[in-house]
Structure formats: C-alpha cells, structure tokens
Write a protein that binds this DNA or RNA. Structure first.
Lengths: 247, 247
DNA sequence: TTATTATCTAAGCAATTGCTTAGTTTTGTT
DNA sequence: AACAAAACTAAGCAATTGCTTAGATAATAA
C-alpha cells in the first residue's frame, strides 16, 4: 500500500513541514532538535501508528531528487571559503547553491548542517594532497611539498582563500558552536598526525623533537593561511623555504 | 554672546542630532559622511551665518564631559579583542563601555569609529613591547623575546585572545571595510620593519636573507595569534624555540 | 490520465543589527 | 535659582538574519 496523501494530511496537524519532510526522507531521528524529539515522544502513540503505516509504504517515490547534494554542497563550500561562516547568509547560499531555502532546510536541516557538509567535502578535496603526502614516504621534503600544494589548493584564480578550517576557527568563538569547533579541531589533529608520521621517517629524531617540530609546522601552516591573503607568491615561497631550513 | 538654545532651535530643522552634536563639539568636518557634507554645502549660506554666530560663542560649556574617552575605548577594545569585530554589536559595546548608544555615536560617529579608536589604543599598548624590542638592540634574541612578550600581552587570565589586528584581518573581507584593512596592514608593516631593523644588527645577513626572514617571522607571528587560542603554554614556547632555530 | 512526491514560490515571523530621534534628567556654571 | 550643555532613556526605523509555512508547479511512475 502506497504512502499516500491521506496519511500525510492526517499527520500534518502534528508535525511541521520540515519534520514531515524528514519523516518522509528517513526515520532516522539522530540530530533531531529537542523540540522535535519532545513532540515525537509526546505523540508517541499516534506517531507509532503512522510509522507502521509508513513502513507499509513500499512504493518508490514518484519523483526522483533532481539536484545532486554533493554538487550543491561544493558550491556552498566555495562560498563559506571565500566569505567566512558568519558573513555567508542562507539567502546567499540559496543563490550560490541554486536551490531554494526550503530545499536547503529539507536536505541539511539548518545553516550549520550545510556548513558541516561543506567541511566534509573540503576534507575529501584536501585529502588529495594529504594522500599525496601520505604516499610520498618522503619525510620532511614531503611535508614541504604539502605546504606548496596547500597554497595551490587554496587559490581561486588570483584569490587566496587560506584554509577553510583555519578561517573558521579564527572567526567563531569556541562557546558559540561546539559541534563546528570539534570538527575543526579534529581536522587539524589529522594533519598534525600526518606531519608526525612523516617526521618519524627520520630515525635521528627522537619523539620530543618530533612533537615540537609538528607543533612548529602546524603553527607555520596556520600562519600561511592568513599570510596567503596578504603576501605575494614569492614571499610565500620564501616563507616555506625558510620554514624548512632546519628540519 | 553665548551659544544658546535659540540658535540651536533655529538650526535643528537643518541638521540631525548627531550633526548638531558634532557642530557643537567641533567644526572639523573631516571624515563627515558624504550625506552630511552634501547637506552642509547645500545649505552653505545658512550654515556660514550660523558658524559665524557659533564662533561668536565664547562661553565655556556648562557641564564637563563626565566619561573619559580613553577609558571607554579601552573597554571597547577588550570586547573587540575577545569577540571579534562583527560579533560585537553596538548594544554590547554600550554595556561594556558603560555609556549609552547616543553618546557612543556622538563621540565616535559609528561602530567603525569606535573600532578605529580601539586599534589606536591597542597600538599604544603593544608599543610597550615594541619599544622594549626597539631599545633592546639585541638582534634576533630581542625578536624572540618579543614573541614571548606578545603571548603574555595577548593573555587575559587563562584566555588567549591572539592579536587584535590579525583576528580582524582574518575576519573581515578586504572589500568590506577598506579603512580598517588599511590601518591593519599599516600596523603589520610597522612590526615587520622592526623585525628587519633587528635582523640588520647581524652584519652577516645580506638584505635578501633579511627580507625572507622578516616574512618568515611575520608568518610565525600570524600563526601564533591563532595557535595561542588552541595550543597550551608549553607547546607555544616550543613553537617559539623551534622558530628561532632557523635564524 | 492520475497519483504521488520533489521542488519551487511567495510570504511571513521573531530576533538582531546599526543608527537616529525626541524628550528628560543630571550636573556644573553664573 | 536659573541657565546651559552633557548624558541618559525609551522608543523607533529599515534592513538583515535564520528559519518556517502553505500552496503551487513539475516530474515521474503506475
């Protein structure tokens, strides 16, 4: 039996639009807002009965999703990268992603959700140069190449956008968005671990030196993220050169 | 003849409140908004006659200013430093500075004016450690001490606020506030020049090396501004130590 | 052709923002 | 005590913000 308009009409008085959409898309309540969860438990009996009815609905959807989520997230990531998190409004996202606000909220729940998906996409892209470093097995020279690759990666035409993660860490306050902060710190630690791994390829370095040098390299990378917006290409290359003189 | 309510009443229909306040405080039209200037020129005849009357007003003000501008700017600077420029609303400034919004606009013209005054004050404070570096005549070791002094300077209790200038550079987009960007770049160049000056105390360095090392040090300082918010004290000290191994 | 869902459109909401207004209160001078 | 200006208070404005609603339209399967 198909999930039909009759059931939807009956459920409407109990759930708002985005909840209904969520219900249709998935029964996964993970990350639902407390308000939504509270409402769900409050109407648990009715909810259960409708879920039963929903589970009976086996027919494929009449209309397939038209926009590709990865494509629109890529566009959103670009905007966040150029503008920063706070200065990017949902209306700007709507224009850049090419889908309307309702679809944004239906697919990603809220602005933060769009941003977190953008960070995930950013990770897949920067993984290209991280994998290059991982596979190079080239110790410090590999890390130096990573720095150059990173500068190339952060360019958009003549515009240098720095690192999306570093930009955002410096922009939002820790207490204002813990989820985002946690993700960003995780990301930074992954890069640091990679540096440690490559530094360990030099048997002459003991662990204390390696930890210090890893922090030193992270600091330089943080600096480059900002410097890339202010210094010219020659200066940036010189900075990398001097950075690696004694490693 | 005193500047009295009669003149003020007559001028009121031609000027808004903040212009009237400005008129009373000063005849300096520098940095007046184009709208204000246009209005001034538009009513130049009337304006000139009132200026004449104003110039005749020799009596001292009945009531002295009660709040100290430097004190309130110091408080504003602290807020901008902790929160960032955009995340600091005028209502928050009002609370922190302890004066009402009208007085803020009367004294500083707009939010940007408050921020620019805050940057000026920030400069007077960081000049303490810049002067220490300038007078130390201690080459690279003096610069290293400056790094440590900077970390101490950026602390507020256990909170590390980074560099007010670096924070803001990373937060606002270049095209969104040119006046602020210009001030911030000027500030950075002053510090770089100081580094160059100290590096030159080592006769063995030629100019090319010095320019490279100055950029390298600026990059490290930019990095520290962010790192100071994330890394612990030992890590920061290690970063500085490793940074100066290359010089 | 009909049913169903995806996606859109237009409008709206409450809160926040930078800034202004008009009148009131406070304070210091005469 | 009166006068004059500083500073305050309360309210307001237009624009922007994140997010929601209700109905309409488009696209696909049956």
């Amino acid at each position: 039996m198909a999930f039909n308009g009759f059931f939807l009409q009956i459920m409407k008085p109990f759930f708002n639009n985005t909840v209904l959409t969520s219900l249709k898309n998935s029964l996964n309540l993970e990350n639902s807002s407390p308000k939504t969860l509270k409402f769900f438990f409050k109407e648990s009996f009715l909810f259960l009965s409708y879920c039963l009815a929903l589970c009976c609905s086996l027919k494929t959807m009449a209309r397939k999703k038209q926009y590709n989520e990865e494509e629109v997230i890529q566009k959103a990531m670009g905007l966040f990268w150029r503008n920063g998190y706070e200065a990017t409004s949902v209306r700007m996202l709507e224009k850049e992603m090419g889908i309307n606000q309702f679809s944004i909220y239906a697919s990603f729940k809220n602005k933060q959700g769009v941003f977190l998906e953008s960070i995930k996409y950013y990770k897949t892209q920067i993984n290209i140069i991280k994998d290059k470093l991982r596979k190079s097995n080239n110790g410090v020279a590999g890390i130096q190449q990573y720095f150059s690759d990173f500068l190339e990666f952060s360019k958009e035409g003549s515009l240098c956008k720095g690192c999306l993660v570093t930009n955002t860490v410096n922009e939002i306050k820790e207490d204002s968005d813990e989820i985002i902060m946690t993700e960003l710190k995780k990301f930074a630690n992954e890069i640091r671990d990679l540096f440690v791994s490559n530094l360990k390829q030099d048997d002459s370095k003991d662990n204390t030196i390696i930890e210090k040098q890893a922090d030193y390299l992270m600091n330089s990378l943080l600096g480059l993220s900002i410097a890339s917006k202010v210094f010219n290409q020659n200066q940036l290359e010189d900075i990398i050169e001097v950075t690696f003189l004694n490693l």
